[in-house]
């Protein structure tokens, strides 16, 4: 376990050191970029949970990111205007409290994941990819044409969520909170992967007909995994709207889902930690290369091909060596 432990410890130390290093270097923007990396890592890790362990290649994961972000955005906008949230049986004027907003974001994303998953899991393979993509695009167009909540202009978040004892308007506090949530989420997902539930999930990826022949109703397990992934995607959405103080339909666009898949593949399928590496490399490369040329995809594309060809278990697998397989 040594090499893997060293890699994980070094990664954690590096993430903890970002704000002080940025302060020393006089580059406060680095903290903002690093927060973005962590949020994308969380979204990608939740996607990796179903793709890497469950074999469900979802091309619509941005939907859950967007739903989580819109949930927080909408609830906060009603709190700001003092108006009631529509479609509720009781009058509720929204809230700024993260302790309500964020679990609500997870719940809404999970509910949509339940419906989307229940319908999509009747299919497999390329059909599953297409149908999850279709659902995500439906939601994208829904928010695009919903004038109440900004339509194509999106929604501004006038006040970041509030947590007692923390000032989330401070970028460093926000960064550390995001880091803590990412670590907790990774540990929870990791536990799930190695539990009996996770064992069934991983077996289903390898040989689903055989699992059914053993007497296991595989669809229920896959659906539950899909819902869990949706919930964590929703949490990433709640963080993202706080980070950018804005949510627009672009967050649900299929290119965003594609980006998440790229992060997962880049970092290493079925590793969870790989999502952090993948998000860091993709977003930092994007930032750096975009400074030279707007055609940054020209550089990124071949890089991705090289990773897929030569580091078949992704960048994390390449860093952590064979021991990463136990993840």
């Amino acid at each position: 376990m040594r090499r893997r432990s060293v890699v994980l410890a070094a990664g954690l130390a590096l993430l903890l050191a970002v704000p002080p290093l940025a302060a020393i270097a006089g580059e406060p923007f680095a903290v903002t970029l690093a927060s973005r990396v962590l949020i994308y890592a969380l979204a990608a890790a939740s996607l990796d949970f179903i793709v890497g362990y469950g074999g469900m290649v979802s091309f619509g994961h941005a939907a859950f990111l967007g739903l989580g972000a819109y949930t927080v955005g909408i609830v906060a906008s009603h709190a700001f205007d003092g108006t009631a949230v529509p479609l509720l049986p009781f009058a509720w004027h929204g809230t700024d409290s993260a302790l309500i907003q964020w679990p609500l974001a997870m719940l809404i994303s999970a509910l949509f994941a339940l419906v989307i998953g229940a319908l999509s899991l009747r299919t497999a393979g390329v059909y599953f990819i297409m149908i999850t993509l279709a659902f995500a695009q439906m939601l994208y167009h829904l928010f695009l044409t919903l004038p109440t909540y900004g339509g194509q202009d999106g929604l501004n978040l006038w006040r970041r969520s509030e947590i007692p004892g923390l000032d989330l308007a401070d970028d460093v506090s926000f960064y550390y909170l995001t880091l803590a949530l990412l670590i907790i989420s990774l540990l929870i997902l990791k536990r799930l992967v190695h539990s009996r539930f996770g064992m069934v999930l991983r077996a289903g990826k390898q040989n689903e007909p055989r699992l059914q022949a053993l007497g296991i109703p595989t669809v229920r397990y896959k659906l539950l995994a899909f819902v869990i992934a949706g919930a964590f995607g929703g949490l990433a959405g709640a963080l993202t709207v706080n980070h950018t103080e804005f949510v627009g339909p672009g967050l649900l666009h299929w290119t965003r889902s594609g980006e998440l898949l790229v992060i997962v593949i880049l970092g290493g399928l079925g590793s969870l930690y790989g999502s952090v590496v993948g998000a860091a490399v993709l977003l930092i490369l994007e930032e750096v290369i975009a400074g030279w040329t707007e055609h940054w995809m020209i550089v990124l594309g071949p890089f991705l091909v090289l990773v897929v060809l030569f580091a078949r278990r992704g960048l994390y697998g390449w860093l952590a060596g064979r021991e990463a397989e136990g993840d």
Binding site: S195, R196, V200, I216
Partner: peptide
């Protein structure tokens, strides 16, 4: 097999 926490190994 809806047991989520204990390590099956």
């Amino acid at each position: 097999a809806f047991r989520f926490w204990r390590d099956a190994r």
